[in-house]
Every structure is written in C-alpha cells, then in structure tokens.
C-alpha cells in the first residue's frame, strides 16, 4: 500500500512525531511504500538541525533524517508554518532577510499543495497529532 503521513505536533512536547516515526518505519520494513511525510503546525519543528537533545535521549530530528536517507523519504515542511516558527532553508533565509538557516538534512520546504497532493496520490493519509 502507498501511504502518506501528516505530523501536526513538534518533537518531545508531544508523542505525535515519535508515533509517526515508529509507524512509518514499521510500514516501510513491511514493504509498504511511503509517498510523503508532511509536517504541519508545530510539526515543522521536527525539521531543525539545531536541536541538541541530551545524549541519553532519542534524537527525533536525526532519526527522521536517517530514515529519509535509508528509504529515500520525501520529508516536507510546510512553508507557511515554517516561516511562522523560524524554520528555514538557505533560500528561505535569504528571501526573508535572515542570516542563518536551520533545516535538517533530508527535509525540504514546500507548500500546502504537497499535502493535498499526498492525499490524492496515496491509498491512505495517516495523521499524527491531537
């Protein structure tokens, strides 16, 4: 089955990203195909490479980057949500006159149309959030 995932909550505060990660990993290991992972609302905070959690805890951001590398996942941060919350790639930082970017490897920034397209193209769209 071809599935997509929407994650609506940020890391650590909320379980959504953890559960979405375990779901996605299990589904991929089971042979299913992931069309896209879309991060919305505070979920865009899963895509900052500046996160530095304690050594004895899981690194939620790196975990997504590694899974993306292994399975060639399409990790998309919503541009409007990211702008509000200070998540930027090099182009976005330049466009908004900021002196730094913070997007983590394996993530990209794009529009909400990517979420709608994921709904159209996938057999199932699974939401993780409140």
């Amino acid at each position: 089955m071809k599935f997509s995932v929407m994650i609506s909550e940020g890391p650590y505060t909320h379980q959504a990203s953890d559960t979405a990660y375990h779901f996605t990993k299990a589904a991929l290991e089971d042979g299913h195909e992931c069309f896209r992972i879309f991060f919305y609302h505070d979920g865009v905070n899963n895509g900052t490479r500046l996160a530095s959690p304690p050594q004895d805890d899981r690194n939620i951001v790196n975990r997504w980057s590694e899974l993306a590398k292994e399975y060639k996942l399409d990790l998309v941060l919503c541009i409007a949500a990211a702008q509000r919350r200070g998540i930027a790639d090099a182009d976005e930082a330049k466009r908004n006159g900021k002196n730094a970017d913070n997007i983590a490897p394996g993530f990209r920034i794009s529009g909400l149309g990517q979420l709608i397209e994921a709904g159209i193209q996938s057999d199932r769209l699974v939401t993780f959030g409140d």
Binding site: L112, I116, G119, I120
Partner: peptide
C-alpha cells in the same frame, strides 16, 4: 477524491483553526 476537513477546536486558543483554513484554501485549487 472526497476531502473532509474536520474542525474541532476553538478559533484563537490554538493555531489549528487558522492553519486548517489555510489548507482548505490551498486545497480548493486542486
């Protein structure tokens, strides 16, 4: 496909309502 946007939260206590409306407006183009 049949898209249904379910709105369950009050408008200003959290951002969900406002950002949900943004999805609806973008999605309308599809």
């Amino acid at each position: 496909k049949k898209f249904l946007y379910v709105n369950r939260k009050a408008p200003y206590g959290t951002i969900y309502a406002q950002e949900a409306l943004e999805v609806v407006l973008i999605g309308a183009a599809f």
